[in-house]
């Protein structure tokens, strides 16, 4: 199939950037979207032009590296699918395809379609963990966890941290991403002791990073390649109110000895 691509090209974080039109010819409909870009890149290089930079790694929809806004939708038109698992059979020959990076103040563009998502890491570092030293915790089966709780925690834990939720949101809110971790850990008995300080610290970090708040439009859920439900945002909000009302958590120092 033949396609006309309109791709965001930006030399570095200081460059203004612009859309560039590139023809992609003879693409197999069985190729993945990223393999289509590989083919385009091979041709660009043969013609002495720099290839399009884009993040990718596992190409199995699990590492969360790929991050393309395709025709205005994060990860493109297929529901519950990352850019790397999107295949060209979802498009028609002759189609125009617009490819842009995630757009959010907290995700500055580094080059072309590559953005800096380290803000996500910093939110997790603020509180997205259970404080347990490596050593000899009790036997894994000593605390039974009801299957429905374990399953629900798992549904949240599948988040791949790609940032599509932020890219889809008019407020650039990371609440779906954050709530996935808060929800997972608050549903499990092991996560309960730190539930208050965790949610307060993560929300605090979110504000510092320049992300927006949630105004319940659910664009995030629609864009999420792992189909994470906004019910986790509701749970996070409950966790937050609970924690805020009881706030006596010391701000400084996580997980002392």
């Amino acid at each position: 199939m033949d396609l006309t691509l309109h791709v965001w090209r930006q030399k570095n974080s200081k460059d203004a950037g612009k859309m560039e039109t590139i023809e992609a010819k003879g693409i197999s409909e069985n190729a993945s979207f990223l393999e289509m870009l590989d083919t385009v890149n091979e041709n660009l290089q043969k013609n002495g032009k720099e290839p399009i930079a884009f993040d990718h790694d596992c190409r199995e929809g699990i590492c969360g590296s790929c991050s393309l806004v395709i025709n205005g939708e994060p990860h493109g038109p297929e529901y519950g699918t990352t850019s790397c698992q999107l295949h060209m059979r979802s498009f028609k020959s002759g189609q125009n395809i617009f490819i842009e990076p995630w757009r959010a103040k907290a995700f500055p563009v580094l080059k072309d379609l590559v953005v800096d998502r380290s803000a996500f890491d910093r939110i997790q570092q603020a509180g997205g963990f259970i404080s347990v030293n490596t050593g000899s915790p009790q036997d894994a089966n000593s605390i039974p966890v009801p299957k429905q709780d374990a399953d629900k925690a798992f549904d949240a834990a599948v988040c791949i941290g790609c940032g599509a939720c932020v890219a889809a949101c008019k407020n650039a809110s990371p609440m779906l991403f954050m709530s996935a971790k808060v929800s997972q850990l608050s549903l499990l008995p092991q996560g309960k002791p730190e539930r208050e300080r965790r949610v307060l610290a993560m929300v605090d970090q979110m504000k510092k990073e320049g992300f927006g708040n949630c105004t319940n439009q659910y664009e995030c859920e629609a864009a999420c390649p792992k189909e994470i439900s906004v019910e986790h945002i509701a749970r996070m909000n409950r966790e937050y109110f609970r924690a805020a009302l009881r706030e006596e958590t010391p701000k400084e120092g996580h997980g002392g000895e």
């Binding site: 000899s136 915790p137 036997d139 894994a140 605390i143 039974p144 299957k147 925690a153 798992f154």
Partner: peptide
């Protein structure tokens, strides 16, 4: 397995 469960890894149950 003990360590991972303590960290909140949601294994199948």
């Amino acid at each position: 397995i003990d360590q991972c469960v303590a960290q909140g890894v949601p294994f199948a149950r």
